[in-house]
Amino acid sequence: MFNKKSHLLIFGKGFNYSEDGPGNRLIYHLKGCNLHCPWCSNPDGLKSEEYEKGTPVDELLKEILSCKPMFFDGGGVTFTGGEILCQADAMENILFQLTENKIHTAVETNASLPSLKRLMPYIDYLIADFKHPNEKKLMQVVGASLLPIKDNLKTRVLSGKPLLVRVPLIHGFNDNDEALEGFTEFFRELSELGAKDSLWFELLKYHEYGREKWEKEGLPYTVKNGFISDKRYNEIMEFFRLRGIAAINT
């Protein structure tokens, strides 16, 4: 069914607990991204060089299976980026095989490409960014179209499988009332489509974990002041709460 020779370009791996999916997880960071978010915390994963030799999927599977004793508390493997959809074929291959081997799978994606749909059956836990509810602003700042993202998220909700929608809150980009109203509208739309126990919203405060890496890559870090104060963060949480949307914190 799949190309046995398919490879994945990976630029980082390691374990973490409960931050990118449930339980203790092995996280792989995949190279390449179709967007250009100025606050990206992994700019080292933005580029993908074609001449690079990736990790063959069968080798990766072997490695993951050897890590089974670490997948406690409902843990497993999480693929994140870069953007995993830039390597959709190989991703489909590894996710399928992991499902066959009963390893819990999670994926973190910007959800901006249609290929996500064919991966969904093999993703036990989907974490999707929803960065801005306005098409124009989204395109202008990160280079993504809104429509495929919304379409992917709705499809996921309709499938009834777990979905965590993450909003990276960035001052000056998506923390104004207009954007918040836009988020509310879409969150409501999603909530009406599916069961509440498999859909969550998370608001992540802007951080600058990536700044040093941008500098290391020789790239300019252009975000001037993206920080959200605790006061504003609490106001935003309250804003959503009053509108019937409970955000979680992983």
């Binding site: 607990y17 409960s18 203790n24 004793p69 997948f71 406690f72 508390d73």
Partner: peptide, 18 residues
């Protein structure tokens, strides 16, 4: 608590370690 989750539990109290 993070320290427990990320360092101590996998090593000491890992329920999958036989």
């Amino acid at each position: 608590l993070d320290f427990r989750n990320k360092v101590i539990r996998p090593l000491f109290f890992n329920p999958l370690n036989e």
